[in-house]
Design a protein around this nucleic acid. Sequence first.
DNA 1: CTGGATGCAAAGGTTTTGCACGCTA
DNA 2: TAGCGTGCAAAACCTTTGCATCCAG
Lengths: 141, 141
Amino acid sequence: MENKSQRMTKQRRIILDELRKLTSHPTADELYEIVRQRLPRISLGTVYRNLDVLSENGEVLKLESAGSQKRFDGDVSQHCHVRCVSCGRVGDVQEALPEPDVSGVSAPGFTITHGVSEFYGVCEACRGGDELAAPGGRIRQ
Amino acid sequence: MENKSQRMTKQRRIILDELRKLTSHPTADELYEIVRQRLPRISLGTVYRNLDVLSENGEVLKLESAGSQKRFDGDVSQHCHVRCVSCGRVGDVQEALPEPDVSGVSAPGFTITHGVSEFYGVCEACRGGDELAAPGGRIRQ
DNA sequence: CTGGATGCAAAGGTTTTGCACGCTA
DNA sequence: TAGCGTGCAAAACCTTTGCATCCAG
């Protein structure tokens, strides 16, 4: 179920290539800006369409968990993420952790298939940051 | 840090009241439709503003899901959620589970404060559903 | 060649915001 | 009465889509 009948266009190859180079889990428009340096005429719509295709093929990860914008990860190996509660940035957890055990877990009206551990914290930029007053501050990115 | 200098308006009280009655983790507009039955002249903006205030005060939970609609939970006691990978609906896990241990977990550039287990699966409506062909289908709500 | 992919621009869906007025404390 | 909260509408934001054209296989 990996490869359908899809073409490896120049755009798709470069999007995948740049995303794999990054560890920053960029948003679609951040990646768009980066890819634009190699393909100045690419459109944001193309970036979105390719990220969709690539994530359905399992070649990239679409991180839907929080923040306002989706973020993407070129590293599809099993690993956990941290999210900055202040700005939404995402980082990789270094340790390999087991997935939460699903066997004793139930929820009425749902068939549970898997679980993930998600971590939260503050990134360096926001720790140094000052415009964030409230402890338990709002999410802004 | 709970209560600032905020007023308990009729709108805010009814929003909180209705949300606490529900176990469905409604989106803002779903809750808007429900609250409208008691306050026909309330605006959607007011619902959003109050859900913001209430979640900052810790009186409700804002369940963030990037790129789609946020959902809200009137039950702020510690419990885990399941998300339907097909429609985005959220349910409550019945078992009380421990939070992932943060002590041995690190990520470069981040100060990790806590972790949660999140579960994924399929809800009843989507299991019975038919318009979902692809195994590993796309998220639509 | 053929049909999937692109660029462009417009539309779509969700959330936020400015403003004048209303109402809680 | 003061100033937070409201309703309304417009704007902002992120993502998706229609269409004519392009190009990978």
